[in-house]
């Protein structure tokens, strides 16, 4: 995973709540066995509507998505995270995320910044008024800055630390190999085993 300290870029205001991962990427694209190349699948159905915000050329290079509440609910498909990243998003801002989506983002390297809804509203208004406004997301300080606005965001300490250090989760866990082996010895002996 690449290190993440601060990211600055344009932000796209997506005033839709309850965006489920089926909308982010439909099941038709889950048959693929690769981890990349999902950019065209992102919001595929909604992008057919010329009015959809991603079709607004002013936001075409945006790398920060500001979404409504309950972003990423539904299916556990990590393809949703990959599609957002393949399209060019580095950060998603919302007042509440689906638990599994947020977990997946944390593993794959997409930053999910949780912001109070009234502050999301202010961010929306700011980037709608001035689409060329640079938004910067400072992970060290857990602060989003755009124009005169400074907005704090939440992210758990552990994920923040892994992002700042660019650390692979599996590598960290494997450094505790002995503890896992010891634990395994003390498990209940009746627990099921497959052959």
């Amino acid at each position: 995973m690449e290190k993440f300290t601060t990211h600055a870029g344009l932000a796209v205001p997506m005033r839709i709540s309850n965006i489920d991962t089926d909308q982010i990427i439909s099941s038709a694209h889950l048959k693929r066995i690769t981890r990349t190349g999902f950019e065209d699948a992102l919001f595929e159905e909604w992008r057919k509507d010329p009015e959809f915000i991603l079709n607004n050329p002013q936001y075409s290079t945006a790398s920060i998505l500001i979404a409504g509440a309950n972003f990423g609910i539904g299916s556990s498909r990590e393809h949703a995270v990959w599609a957002l990243m393949d399209y060019g998003f580095k950060v998603v801002i919302s007042s509440r995320f689906g638990d599994i989506f947020r977990g997946n983002s944390g593993k794959a390297g997409l930053l999910t910044a949780q912001v109070e809804q009234d502050l999301v509203d202010r961010l929306w208004s700011a980037v709608e008024a001035e689409p060329a406004l640079t938004v910067s997301v400072d992970l060290e300080a857990r602060m989003i800055r755009c124009g005169t606005l400074s907005v704090p965001f939440q992210i758990d300490d552990y994920t923040r630390w892994r992002f700042l250090e660019g650390l692979d989760d599996i590598g960290i866990t494997l450094s505790h190999r002995d503890e896992i082996a010891n634990f395994a010895k003390s498990r209940h002996d009746w627990m099921p085993r497959i052959n």
């Binding site: 990590e78 599994i100 997946n104 989760d169 866990t173």
Partner: peptide, 10 residues
């Protein structure tokens, strides 16, 4: 609980 592909790998 459900997990994503990175966690499946983990």
């Amino acid at each position: 609980f459900g997990i994503g592909t990175s966690e499946v790998e983990h």
